[in-house]
């Protein structure tokens, strides 16, 4: 801001905590904040990959760290965040996709959201069944 503008002392509304003003913004921020734990999980896997490349003893050390109480609690939190990501990803999908028309009618937002959520739930279950 220039000195001249300072002299006029214009009113500038503070942007501090702008996202707390409206529940819609809070939900937006929670959705964006899921990324921090998604990144953390990717880093945990990346460390696992490094330990795997270093040999059996190193990898068993990584496995041992995963078995600690704090790690399991952290992963429960990461799981909750991923489930919220799953929901919010398809919740905003109708706004991110180009409009889809079926028989000349716009495909309703809920249809897109619930189809996506259902697909994601099915794929997650398939992954679980393969791994069990």
């Amino acid at each position: 801001m220039s000195a001249q503008m300072d002299k006029r002392r214009p009113y500038v509304r503070s942007m501090n905590s702008w996202w707390k003003r409206d529940p819609f913004f809070v939900r937006y921020m929670v959705m964006e904040a899921t990324s921090v734990l998604v990144a953390l999980y990717a880093v945990i896997l990346l460390v696992g990959l490094l330990r795997l490349s270093q040999g059996e003893a190193a990898f068993n050390g990584w496995l041992g760290a995963l078995e600690s109480g704090p790690s399991i609690l952290l992963h429960v939190l990461i799981l909750v965040v991923f489930l919220y990501h799953l929901w919010s990803w398809f919740k905003v999908m109708p706004k991110t996709l180009p409009m889809i028309f079926v028989n000349g009618k716009k495909l309703p937002a809920d249809t897109i959201t619930y189809t996506g959520v259902l697909l994601a739930v099915v794929v997650n279950l398939i992954v679980l069944i393969i791994l069990v």
């Binding site: 995963l66 991923f82 990501h85 990803w89 697909l119 794929v123 997650n124």
Partner: peptide, 22 residues
């Protein structure tokens, strides 16, 4: 990344971070 995290993320986190370690 967003699609993959939604499709397989929860299952992976459950397996690698909870089910197998515990």
């Amino acid at each position: 990344g967003g699609v993959l995290a939604a499709l397989v993320g929860p299952a992976l986190v459950f397996v690698t971070g909870i089910a197998v370690p515990a």
